[in-house]
Structures are given as structure tokens and as C-alpha cells.
Simulated assay, not measured.
Amino acid sequence: MTARALGRSGVSVGPLSFGAAAIGNLFTAVTDEQAARAVHTALAHGYRHFDTAPHYGLGLSERRLGAALRDHPRDAYTLATKVGRLLVEDGRPGPDDQGFAVPATHRRVWDFSADGVRRSLEASLQRLGTDRIDLVHLHDPDDHADQALREAYPALERLRGEGVIGAIGIGMNQAALPARFVRDTDVDAVLLAGRYTLLDHSGLDVLLPLAHERGVGVLVGGVFNSGLLADPRPGATFDYAAAPAELLDRALRLEDACEQHGVPLRAAALHFPFGHPAVVSVLVGARSAAEVRDAAAMLDRPVPAALWNGLRERGLLPAHVPVPAPTG
């Protein structure tokens, strides 16, 4: 698959994107060396888009990603970060309470004001050690939609016009609010996490058709739904919580159907979003070189049309859900 443009921005992304939350010590710690090796391996295996945020490890992800990319030509990759949470120093740090194995040296403060956008980007540029960011997402404005529309988005639009950033996106794990931004603004991209997978097709209801109509590129994250579609077994997680029994059963039936065609479930999960023409990339989180190599190998695996037909026959994929062209 070739690189595809995000809206009319001129920023392009490849089919496989690197999600850098894990190298910000999401749930468990990794070393600087492990993080750097994961990023270098991603470049060697064809990843061309790297996604981070101040939220991820209280800036640790941005610092590690910037350090790992520093020796590579800047035009060899595109870089995304996010705005909406400012990092404010905390004089009495304890453990982080938002899932990252880092000391809470800073507090996250919601801020979708124009000033907050500029301050956040200035800090991100410094942590990343770069002079430009290709794509900036409004990050999880679920409870701040009005301010994000009135203040943050226009600030990003001005920065895009000035050439400080290349493209504007919105990154969320729901589909309704991104659809509103696609409808009411001139965003270039949507990062949709967990809402267009083999288990959750809700992104197809409104967002994906609207994005396609408006020429907005959709990057799909969370294709494994936080683990269930990577390794379905008792105790597996769905959206970062224990998977309900009915979802675990569905994932196991998906796995069985895939095995009938010699295709790992992980490969089917990675290929699936490309059935919709709005989807330009899948974004996969990785904390190690091994995970990077695995995702690249899974996306390279041939997936025959018979697999998708088999999922429909078993009632695991509704008839109206588009599927990718067969590969291999």
C-alpha cells in the first residue's frame, strides 16, 4: 500500500503507523534503549508515521520519540502530537494515576484555549527536539467540545495557515464528536481508536462515510481493542478492562474462523479497517522491536477473500460492512 494524503494538507502517511504511548511507559516501564530500538526498527520495517502526545508518560513518550528520530532525515517520516492537556509542574510528585509507570512530576490540566494550544505545542516541539509537527490532533475533547470548537480548532487553523503545523486532526475513542468536527470544520484527519475493528463497527455508522465524502483521512487505532483481538483468552482485555464473556466468545470464534484459512487473527484485525476507503493508516502501539516486527509481518500476510466471506457466513461480520480487497 502506498502513502495517502490527509485531506488537502499535503501531509501523507503510510499504511502502518507507530503509536508511541507504550514507550511512554503505558502500564509497564520500558528502558530508553528498548524505546529507541522499537522506533529504529519501525523505520527499518516501513513505518513512516509516528504518533505521540504530552499525556503519554507526562512527556516521556515525546522525549524518547524525539531522541530516537533525531538521527534520521526529517523527510523520512511524519510526526503527530496532540493538544488539550497542559503539563503543569507538581511540587509533591507521587505515582502517576493515569496508567503510566512514571512519577507524577506534573499534573495534566485540560486546556483547549487558543493560548493553551500554543503553549502545549511550544512544549511539545522542545521535548521532541524538532522545529515542526506534521499533524496535530485535538486530544479527547469529550467534555470540552465547545471550547475545542470555538478556541482550539481556530488556533490550529491559524498555525496551519502559518506553516507551523502541516495538518489538523482530532483523536478520540468515540465516533460521534469527530463526526461533528468533520462536518463543521476543515480538519484533515481523524484518529479513531477502537471504534472500527472486527469487534466494533460503530465508526461506520456516520463518521467513516462522512470523512470519505469530505476527503478527511482516517487513521484507525486500537485495532486489537487493547488486547482481545491480539490474543483472545480468559482474562484478555477489551478497551482496557476485562472483556465481557460475550465479546470473548465472539473473539474466539473470529480466531477460529481465521485459523480455518491459515490467517492469524492479528493479521485479519490489521487488514480489516482498509476495507473502507476513508481509512489511510492503522496505528499500532509498540513497546519493543519484536512487537514492531510482528505488526509489520501481520500486515504483510496475505488475507484471502474466502476469509471475509467465511466471517459473513458465520454471522461474525455484517453484510453491510466493507472488507479489503484480497491480498496475496
Rank of each mutant, 00 (worst) to 15 (best):
Y77A: 03
Y77I: 10
T78Q: 02
T78F: 05
L79E: 03
L79A: 00
L79D: 02
L79F: 03
L79W: 07
L79T: 01
L79Y: 09
A80V: 02
A80F: 10
A80Q: 12
A80P: 01
T81F: 06
T81N: 03
K82W: 13
K82R: 11
K82M: 08
V83I: 10
V83C: 04
V83L: 04
V83A: 08
G84T: 00
G84S: 01
G84Y: 00
G84H: 00
G84M: 00
R85H: 04
R85N: 09
L86T: 02
L86V: 02
L87P: 12
L87A: 07
L87R: 08
L87I: 12
V88C: 05
V88Q: 05
V88P: 04
E89S: 02
E89T: 04
E89P: 00
E89C: 01
D90A: 14
G91R: 14
G91L: 09
G91S: 07
G91D: 11
G91C: 08
R92E: 13
R92K: 05
R92V: 02
R92N: 10
R92F: 13
R92P: 02
P93A: 05
P93V: 01
P93W: 03
P93C: 02
P93E: 06
G94C: 06
P95L: 14
P95C: 10
D96H: 10
D97G: 09
G99A: 12
G99C: 15
G99H: 10
G99T: 10
G99E: 15
F100V: 12
F100A: 12
F100G: 13
F100P: 15
F100N: 11
A101P: 04
A101W: 01
V102H: 06
V102F: 05
V102P: 03
V102E: 05
V102Y: 05
V102G: 02
P103G: 08
P103Y: 07
P103N: 10
P103I: 08
A104V: 14
T105Q: 05
T105W: 15
T105I: 05
H106C: 02
H106V: 00
H106I: 00
H106E: 04
R107I: 01
R108L: 13
R108D: 04
R108G: 08
R108Y: 00
V109Y: 01
V109Q: 13
V109R: 09
V109T: 11
V109L: 08
V109E: 15
W110A: 14
W110G: 15
W110H: 12
W110N: 14
W110R: 12
W110K: 13
